[in-house]
């Protein structure tokens, strides 16, 4: 008799448990299905398309031709160069500024900290399209910035921010730095608040200067966060689209065209060449993987 109830209990429990397992898999598999459908499936499909050439829907299988074409495509090389110029100059500039501001704004005795933090962060609430347009007007030939620079006697004639290949790149870098420095600063500030103040106390007693404290304590303690922000910034920069599109239109000529914009143009502006556009798309994936791996290495090694 007791054996039987035990058995019933067991099966009952087993059933309940089975039901739970089944439910938990449902919870997990719904989003997985979406991610497979909208991320992995298209990427696999893209690889298949990238082996084809043709316009619109008439595609012929041409193997690796599209990938070979990349190396001789001047427009592609320009887009990659531009993207890397933004990457090399903008990310370090922004991270250094963000670190500097976060340390300044983390001082206990500083007044109006909240206001300063808010003002530096505020650009992060704007849409990329909106701020790009505002910057375009600010930096027009007779716009505010040129007037201010001339008023301060820093320049004699207006700078052609939008018409000069060099200054257009500088403008993009200025704009992105304005938009994202505060955003990154918030990550550093929250990490700084987790550092035990006793460490700085001890360093001061040992006679470490503020600069030494910054390089010997702050930077090493923030290393994981710096790594995180530099990887997310890298992925962001490699996909840069909204700003060149709305601020400079990729111009003058192709001076600020990015890889993303080139993919967009190949697929939706020119006669659609999806096969080649897919090959260019894969170049971004490769760049993201390589750069993230490098940063991961550098960020971890010195620990």
């Amino acid at each position: 008799m007791t054996e039987m109830t035990e058995e019933i209990k067991k099966t009952k429990k087993g059933k309940l448990e089975r039901n739970r397992i089944w439910m938990s898999w449902t919870f997990v598999l719904i989003p997985t299905l979406f991610i497979i459908t909208f991320y992995f499936y298209p990427m696999i499909q893209a690889f298949w398309i990238s082996l084809h050439t043709g316009t619109g829907v008439n595609l012929d299988f041409t193997g690796l031709d599209n990938y070979r074409r990349l190396f001789n495509d001047q427009a592609f090389i320009t887009a990659v160069t531009n993207t890397f110029i933004f990457f090399i100059f903008q990310i370090p500039l922004m991270i250094i500024l963000a670190l500097f501001f976060s340390v300044l704004l983390n001082q206990k005795t500083l007044h109006f900290k909240g206001i300063f933090r808010t003002l530096v962060f505020l650009p992060a609430i704007t849409s990329l399209v909106a701020y790009s347009l505002i910057f375009r007007y600010l930096f027009s030939n007779d716009g505010v910035v040129n007037q201010a620079l001339m008023f301060m006697n820093l320049i004699d004639a207006p700078i052609f921010w939008l018409g000069d290949p060099f200054w257009a790149k500088v403008l993009i870098i200025i704009a992105i730095t304005w938009r994202w420095t505060g955003y990154n600063m918030i990550f550093y500030l929250s990490a700084l608040q987790n550092i035990d103040p006793g460490i700085y106390e001890a360093a001061r007693i040992d006679g470490a200067s503020a600069v030494q404290q910054f390089f010997r304590i702050t930077i090493p303690m923030l290393r994981p966060v710096i790594l995180f922000t530099s990887i997310t910034s890298t992925i962001g920069t490699l996909q840069l689209f909204d700003e060149p599109m709305n601020l400079t239109g990729g111009g003058p000529g192709n001076a600020t065209t990015t890889i993303s914009q080139y993919i967009y143009n190949l697929s939706f502006e020119y006669t659609p060449n999806f096969g080649y556009a897919a090959a260019v798309s894969y170049s971004i994936v490769v760049f993201v993987l390589i750069l993230s791996a490098i940063q991961f290495r550098v960020g971890r090694e010195r620990k």
Binding site: M43, L238, S281, I284
Partner: peptide
């Protein structure tokens, strides 16, 4: 990266 997805996603 989404930039790499735009073409295949559009086709999908």
């Amino acid at each position: 990266p989404f930039a790499a997805l735009m073409v295949p996603l559009f086709r999908l």
